[in-house]
Design a protein around this nucleic acid. Structure first.
Length: 425
RNA sequence: GUGGGUGUAGUUCAGCGGUCUAGAGCACCAGACUGUGGAUCUGGUUGUCGUCGGUUCAAAUCCGAUCACCCACCCCA
């Protein structure tokens, strides 16, 4: 019998749930503070919902299966198509802009690797129905606040911001041939990951002439918006858009967290404008979160265009990063109090004491059978209990309990009425 | 889908053709008796050496297949 979970799927032991809940709580808290409402959708959707979106290629990466009625269903690889479905079916009654978020489990059928599994949880934040870059800035601000809430600073991570349209404009200015746009995007994406020479080779084998390749490398050197301004004129709406976003983010006081990066492309075909990704400064990990503007959200479902900005923030990379930085978690969710008894004669008395404490909302772990004191204290020590309440013959007779403070090692006999005072002062 | 790496006690790993009747650290269990944990000490347990097959007098060790995990690519969240 193979005890492993299916390939790329994850088990969450209690100690893993500690981190997961910690992260989810952070996501929820920031969502609430930034005024987003939570929603969810089925984890299983009609396979067509996901296919329709971005061509055929995605098909191979979706878990597809047939239900007993022969309908083709899929485990969701992402939340956005479901979001589009929900919005479209209430398009008349919803008032925009909408701010929705979800914390959802997604699946992708592909080989697992560092920072990527076949299954992950993802925080999704979307603002639907707003053209202005203030939508982007709200979403980016929320993501940055999650990061800082997890203890990260601007020395640990940066949000790199790019713009598809600007790349287009620059290429046009350089009179690059647009038929190579996809290859150019690919080359930009590769920069920093593989050697420049290898990129050149790649472009060459794609059929780009030497002159074009040189232009592209010049473009890749662009490091800030001012450089772009000096290259292309002010009529570029994309450029103005991006400038406005940077101004806005300065008002949010996020200047230290953001950088312009012409190389941020993002794969998804549906991004239409500003795109951004969060990275650790050492670049040891892949993007922590990413998102951007996708103004044709509803098109694929037969609706009208609706401006939208979205963000996805997965649980896998951030966990690896926090572990690497030794910042994963400090809380201990285990019960603080343990109640133990020495023989069956005291069991019922111990139950009554446990219930008394639990009625006060205090987390209490009750031993289920009698144990020797040595074992009781040894176990409680391992489980890091704060207090151990011991009940034996003596205690039962006098109607009291023995409470031991595991930190100090001091113990005393306490009357029933004084227990709460002792353990929860 | 392609390429590479790794599977040995609960766990992290060492051993890489004959003394292996397979080890080490950590973990675990036990240290007269009575109602008391954490440090140290002493003793002890733990394994179809991933699975199946092959080569050999001899296989954890070599070869093949298979499964699983990891890493990279492809692609992307």
């Amino acid at each position: 019998m193979n005890l492993n979970p299916p390939q790329g799927m994850r088990d969450f032991y209690p100690e893993d749930m500690l981190f997961r809940n910690y992260l989810f709580d952070k996501w929820r808290e920031i969502s609430r503070i930034y005024g987003f409402e939570e929603f969810d959708a089925p984890i299983v959707e009609s396979a067509d919902l996901f296919r329709r979106k971005s061509g055929e290629e995605i098909d191979e990466q979706i878990y597809v299966f047939k239900d007993k009625g022969g309908r083709e269903l899929a485990l969701r690889p992402e939340l956005t198509p479901s979001l589009a479905r929900l919005i479209l079916s209430r398009i008349k009654e919803l008032h925009f802009p909408l701010r929705w978020f979800g914390i959802v489990q997604c699946f992708r059928y592909e080989r697992a690797q560092k920072g990527r599994k076949r299954e992950h949880y993802q925080w999704n934040v979307d603002i639907i129905g707003e053209e202005s870059p203030i939508a982007e800035s709200e979403v980016i601000a929320a993501a940055v606040n999650v990061m800082t809430g997890l203890g990260m600073t601007s020395r640990d991570f940066k949000v790199r911001i790019g713009h598809r349209g600007i790349l287009h404009d620059i290429l046009k200015y350089h009179e690059c041939e647009m038929k190579y746009f996809n290859q150019i995007c690919l080359a930009l994406d590769k920069r920093g990951k593989i050697a420049d020479e290898a990129i050149k080779e790649m472009l060459k084998s794609d059929g780009l002439p030497e002159s074009e390749i040189q232009k592209i490398f010049k473009i890749m050197e662009i490091r800030n918006i001012e450089e772009i301004e000096s290259i292309i004129d002010n009529k570029s709406t994309s450029l103005n858009n991006l400038k406005e976003l940077f101004n806005l983010l300065e008002i949010y006081n996020l200047k230290d967290f953001i950088e312009f990066d012409i190389g941020i492309i993002r794969g998804l075909a549906y991004y239409t404008g500003i795109v951004f990704e969060g990275f650790d400064v050492e670049r040891k990990y892949r993007a922590i979160f990413g998102g951007g503007r996708y103004n044709n959200l509803l098109q694929n479902l037969g609706g009208k265009d609706l401006p939208a900005v979205g963000l996805g923030f997965g649980d896998v990379v951030i966990k690896e990063l926090l572990e690497y930085k030794n910042m994963e978690l400090k809380t201990n969710a285990k019960p603080d109090i343990a109640i133990a008894f020495l023989s069956d004669n005291e069991r019922d008395f111990a139950i009554k004491i446990a219930e008394l404490i639990r009625k006060k909302g205090i987390s209490t772990d009750l031993f289920l059978k009698p144990e020797k004191p040595k074992k009781i204290f040894s176990l409680c020590n391992k489980m890091k209990k704060r207090f151990v309440i011991l009940i034996g013959e003596n205690e039962k007779e006098t109607g009291s309990v023995t409470i031991k403070d595991m930190n100090s090692g001091i113990q005393e006999e306490v009357a029933i009425n004084d227990i709460i005072k002792k353990i929860a002062p």
